[in-house]
Amino acid sequence: MTDNKELNSPGYAIPDDLQHAVSITTLDRLYNWGRRWSVWPMMFGLACCAIEMIAAQAARYDLARFGMEVMRPSPRQSDLMIVAGTVTKKMIPAIVRLYNQMPEPKYVVAMGACASGGGPFKEGYNVVAGVDKFVPVDVYIPGCPPTPQALTAGLMKLQEKIDKQSIRKVRWYQKGSDSALIPIPVLGPDLMDPRRYAEIKQLAAQKPAEKATEAKE
């Protein structure tokens, strides 16, 4: 292996005769190096940000240089879900289902203002104010839409995050992490999150005057 600065710095001096013959590194660094340079995004564009995501994938701002050239439509084969676009209540069950179907290690990048916090459409009745209400987000990229260079900068930040992870502490190797599935929201008179059923029942039973004062506080 030729000398690769990122790998060949385990924190102590390497003897001279081994410099160009052998790579010595820590297991964490090797593990993260392999993962950060081969993140496969899921082909999952919702709205306008999807076009900038495709433009980032296209020839001018080539994401293949970062190892992300394989965009799989199937969640089973992808590592990264770039939520690009407004998340609506009608669509969130599908998004959560897709997130559950992704195998670990998986990451979520909220691209654009709408996925980060509802965006300009936050006040809408069919809009979920940010995908992090249902799905854990690793990187938030503001912008409307973020230019391909901004998206690439955000993905580099994700790579930095991956670099800091350690095999010992990482989520998917912990005991009892098999059932980390997010329950899928149900569409009723409004969007119902199964984790909050008891709370919704209690709040809906309050008298309207109580609701008004509590909301103001």
């Binding site: 938030y140 973020p146 901004a150 955000g154 930040k157």
Partner: peptide, 8 residues
């Protein structure tokens, strides 16, 4: 435009 972050 390089203002991506780990929180809102």
């Amino acid at each position: 435009y390089e203002i991506a972050s780990y929180q809102r």
